[in-house]
Amino acid sequence: MHDSRQWTREALRIIEADFQRSADTHLIPLELPGLPGVELYFKDESSHPTGSLKHRLARSLFLYTLCNGWLRPGAPVIEASSGSTAISEAYFARLLGLPFIAVVPAGTAREKLAQIAFYGGQTHLVDDPTQIHAESLRLAAASGGHFMDQFTFAERATDWRANNNIAESIFQQMRHERFPEPSWLVSSPGTGGTLATLGRYVRYRQHPTRVLGADAERSVFFDSYVSGERNLTLDCGSRIEGIGRPRVEPSFMPQVLDAMCKVPDALSLAAMHYLAQRLGRRVGGSSGTNLIGALLVAQQMVRQGEQGSVVAILCDSGERYATSYYDNAWLTAQGYDLAPLIQRVAACAEQGQALDHQIPRAGDLR
């Protein structure tokens, strides 16, 4: 028992030291000439050491798991992930000298698999993306390891009141802006944990800020939000890596959200390309989803004569998708024609033209 306690204490010290070596992520303004009075910012989570928003989650999961006594020296850590969480968890596993196995859909971008391997992790590919959870449980039992289960523990591993909290960071960085208290925060759900943190924090701090969840096309989160049903399922995985789920995950907390929308995949990818053009660097598909959500709330604010700020999450770098979302041959093979949709996104941001009115939306976003 004493040796185990000593090992845990040293592991916690290592993770805390790593945290102290890292600066906060940037808040990047994006001008919207067509939507006067609304100032949009992107919280750039791609600048974490492992390149995505999931770095925060992985750190929180390791701290939570260590303090619960669930990890032990030499025992494998297993995670079900479409890539980004696995990359970040592989990083922390390597810090602690633990074997790491990522259970990922077979279609996961090759760049993500290479990054998992770079941090010393193994990948276990699953043809059916709806089975990664069950396969992770099987591997953990067979290896004597621990299944981290981000989809269950994301909402409870992060301290939504303070420590390692993306919401607190946003409000601190917004203090000297023209509209320091955002009218809206926008994020897309993967586990649902980030949305839970944002929604809980604004209530805890008594901010009037509203929270929008921007869901992917092949996902059940939006439908669950509308219907209240938590047993919805799909027989396919999301085409926007890192967000959208074929089942309602335990970390999805619809009660702390003010609105949701469901963004067609093609529009998410078009918005991703538009945002990459505006920023001068590649971003991931989920950032495109979030841009659409941000434009929808910005349009509503303009219609209602409201001025204010909107903060959306830039989840990860687009370099991970060089052979998929940024490859013209891949896009053509998938049946995507993004050019007219990119023009539509540009017309909304720069000229104030309405986005597709058929994008499903619910709650305070109408």
Rank of each mutant, 00 (worst) to 15 (best):
V211M: 00
D265P: 06
G145I: 11
D18E: 13
A142R: 15
H26V: 03
G363T: 07
W160G: 13
V302R: 14
F118G: 00
V302N: 08
S60T: 06
R59L: 15
Q131C: 08
G144D: 05
F118S: 00
G284L: 04
E155M: 06
E16L: 14
A259L: 13
G51H: 05
R56Y: 14
G37Y: 08
L279N: 00
E31L: 10
D258K: 08
Q131N: 09
F179K: 04
A276P: 00
E89L: 15
K54S: 14
V302T: 10
M174V: 05
N163P: 00
F171R: 09
R210Q: 15
Q20M: 06
T50N: 12
R361C: 14
A102Y: 01
E16I: 08
E89Y: 05
Y325V: 01
S286R: 02
L331C: 13
A346I: 04
E229I: 06
G335W: 01
A141K: 14
R205Y: 07
T194H: 13
E39Y: 02
A17N: 14
S224Q: 05
A312Y: 01
T123M: 11
R278P: 07
G121W: 07
E45D: 11
V297L: 10
G37M: 10
G318M: 10
I116P: 06
S84W: 10
A167E: 09
Y274W: 15
V103Y: 04
S82A: 15
S143K: 13
L96G: 13
Y119S: 05
L279A: 00
T323A: 15
T85E: 11
G237T: 08
A349K: 03
G34S: 13
S22V: 12
G284K: 01
A349H: 02
M1Y: 04
A312D: 02
